[in-house]
Simulated assay, not measured.
Amino acid sequence: MNEYELLNTESGNAVVVALDHGIGMGSVEQFEDPRATLESVIEGGPDGVLVGPYFAERFADVLERADVDILVTADFVSPSSQPGEDVGPWVQQRAFDVERLLACDPVGVKSVLAFGRRDRQAFERNVEYITTLAEELRGTGVPNIVETVMWGKEIPDRFETDHEYVANACRIGWELGADILKAPYTGDSERFEQIVSNAPVPVMILGGPASGSVEMILEDVSGAMQAGARGLIVGRSIWQAENPADVIRSLNEIVHQGRSVETAWSD
Rank of each mutant, 00 (worst) to 15 (best):
M1H: 11
Y4G: 09
Y4L: 06
E5W: 01
T9E: 00
E10S: 10
A14W: 00
V16K: 10
V17R: 03
A18N: 13
D20N: 09
H21Q: 14
E29T: 14
E29F: 15
Q30H: 15
A36V: 03
A36G: 08
A36D: 14
L38Y: 03
S40F: 09
V41S: 00
P53R: 10
A56Q: 02
E57V: 02
R58Q: 09
F59K: 02
A60K: 04
A60C: 11
R65Y: 00
R65E: 05
D69W: 09
D69P: 06
T73E: 15
F76E: 02
V77R: 08
S78K: 03
P79M: 04
S81A: 14
P83W: 01
P89S: 11
W90L: 11
W90G: 13
R94F: 05
R94I: 14
D97R: 07
R100P: 10
L102Y: 10
A103I: 03
C104I: 03
V107H: 01
V107S: 04
V107A: 06
K110Q: 14
R117C: 12
R118K: 14
A122T: 11
N126A: 02
N126L: 09
E128V: 09
Y129N: 03
A134F: 08
L137A: 12
T140V: 11
G141E: 10
V142L: 12
T148P: 00
T148D: 09
V149K: 13
V149I: 15
G152V: 04
E164Y: 14
Y165D: 06
N168Q: 14
W174L: 06
E175K: 12
L176H: 03
A178G: 08
D179W: 04
T186E: 01
E193V: 00
Q194W: 01
I195W: 02
I195T: 07
A199L: 07
A199K: 09
M204N: 07
L206Q: 09
A210S: 15
A210P: 08
E215M: 07
I217D: 01
L218G: 07
D220S: 13
Q226H: 06
A227K: 02
L232V: 13
G235F: 05
G235V: 08
P244L: 06
R249H: 02
L251S: 07
V255G: 04
V255L: 13
V255F: 03
Q257R: 13
R259C: 00
E262Q: 04
E262D: 08
W265L: 13
D267N: 11
